[in-house]
């Protein structure tokens, strides 16, 4: 194969990896925000992505314009996220991490169960935001919607960063994540902070779901695998580190795409889980983990 074709092939794999990776990154980011605020590993994170896509599909099918439908979907996901915290996580206050994990797993099964009753069990699509004509770059092609996904993910990261660094509320979230007791002592309402974190996470997930549905389609059960993959991305980047989560997610997407392209597509879905194990065996802190692995 000549150089140009090799290059085109490489780029094609990279585009694929970055698009999928951006979604993993957003799921991982959602995981991290909740984990930092409350120590909860939220296995229902993937359901927010599902809700984003499915609610937008359902509402826009009812004749509501797409942007409005998307807004409604995000609001609804935030509502579900807040409800998850107030109705399921908070009442179990003081429970062991195992119990909290199982509660979120129960929540994800519940949300999925309700979704298949409210919506249906079919796959659905959304129209692409800017048409379906792919851009050609050095022989590789990329859909306009992929740029939306990557751009959207980038925008979310920038906005979040500004929120954490520039606003009082954001700083309070960081303070509560660093040391809950100290935060409470200086007058930060940690309960509100946790609810806020669940809401933000849900919003991020829903936006990811809306952005990616025109490419990947959606149905009531797309959440489970996304949650596992996003979670692997978060582990890879270092549990509890937002930037690490984003990098871990992107890296996972890229490794999957290159693995499928250059090696074999048979074990593509296994890559994420091999990575989890490798991270655990070699460097439990991940790429950009926190100082301490133990969280007592």
């Amino acid at each position: 194969m000549d150089g140009f074709a090799t290059m085109a092939e490489f780029l094609q794999f990279a585009f694929s990896g970055l698009t999928v990776g951006a979604v993993y990154a957003l799921v991982a980011l959602g995981f991290t925000i909740i984990y930092n605020a409350s120590d909860v590993v939220n296995f229902a994170q993937g359901e927010f992505v599902m809700l984003g896509g499915m609610v937008t599909v359902a509402v826009s099918a009812a004749g509501i314009p797409l942007p409005l439908a998307a807004l409604f979907a995000v609001a609804l996901a935030v509502g579900v996220g807040v409800a998850l915290h107030r109705l399921a996580i908070e009442p179990a206050h003081g429970a062991s991490p195992v119990v909290l994990i199982i509660i979120t797993i129960g929540a994800s099964i519940f949300i999925r169960g309700v979704a298949q009753i409210v919506f249906d069990r079919q796959f659905h699509k959304l129209p692409s935001f800017s048409g379906d004509a792919p851009f050609v770059l050095f022989g590789a092609t990329i859909l306009p919607q992929s740029l939306w996904v990557m751009g959207g993910a980038g925008a979310i990261v920038v906005v979040l960063h500004a929120f954490f660094e520039r606003t009082i509320l954001g700083k309070a979230v960081l303070a509560a994540a660093a040391n809950r007791l100290a935060a409470r002592l200086v007058g930060i309402d940690t309960r509100l902070i946790m609810t806020l974190s669940f809401g933000i996470s849900a919003a991020i997930g829903a936006v990811a779901g809306i952005l990616v549905t025109p490419i990947t389609l959606t149905s009531y059960n797309v959440g489970t695998l996304l949650a596992l993959k996003g979670f692997a991305g978060g582990m890879l980047g270092g549990m509890g580190n937002p930037l690490g989560a984003v990098l871990g997610g992107l890296l996972l997407g890229l490794v999957e795409a290159f693995g499928a392209g250059y090696l074999s597509s048979t074990y593509k879905d296994g890559i994420a889980f091999v990575m989890i194990l490798v991270v655990l065996f070699v460097s439990p802190r991940g790429l950009l983990g926190r100082r301490s692995v133990e969280r007592v």
Partner: peptide, 30 residues
């Protein structure tokens, strides 16, 4: 699988076994 993971404190076994379980299912399918 457990030997390296269980040296870590906390609930890393949950995460490690999660990955390992999915891998076994994948091998059985493939």
């Amino acid at each position: 699988v457990g030997r390296p993971i269980l040296r870590l404190k906390g609930h890393y076994l949950a995460i490690g076994t999660l990955g390992f379980g999915v891998l076994i299912a994948l091998v059985l399918t493939s």
